[in-house]
């Protein structure tokens, strides 16, 4: 029953249903912040596509997007929020549960 709820959470969640958004959030979980250009270069996504994924993540308050002045030039920084971190931790828990269930499941 619990597994069904976890599965429904992954399928029904707009974040988890997109591999790119989940990937960006997991990446940010490890490094906390990144510039837009760095994210663009590292993911290799088209600019418009990355914009739309970031817009979604920003609206859901999983990340903050802010343009800041730096010594070289103004840069757009993307930072993961506490809500975003919680979402990634939740994802790890579900994946771990799924893995354990798979291991204990008898062979059919």
């Amino acid at each position: 029953m619990n597994d069904d709820r976890d599965f429904n959470e992954i399928v029904g969640d707009d974040l988890y249903s997109s591999g790119i958004r989940t990937g960006i959030l997991i990446g940010l979980y490890g490094i906390n912040k990144i510039t837009f250009t760095e994210l663009l270069v590292s993911t290799g996504l088209p600019k418009s596509s990355l914009y739309s994924h970031l817009k979604f993540l920003n609206e859901m308050k999983y990340v903050t997007v802010k343009t800041e002045l730096t010594l070289r030039r103004p840069m757009t920084f993307i930072r993961i929020t506490e809500t975003g971190k919680e979402k990634v931790r939740n994802y790890f828990v579900i994946i771990e549960k799924y893995r354990r269930n798979k291991e204990t499941e008898p062979d059919r």
């Binding site: 591999g19 990937g23 960006i24 590292s42």
Partner: peptide
């Protein structure tokens, strides 16, 4: 899951 792992790896790899 593969796409998300691939994307996160690329971000982390560049940072490292």
């Amino acid at each position: 899951m593969n796409l998300s792992v691939d994307i996160s790896e690329k971000i982390i790899y560049r940072h490292i």
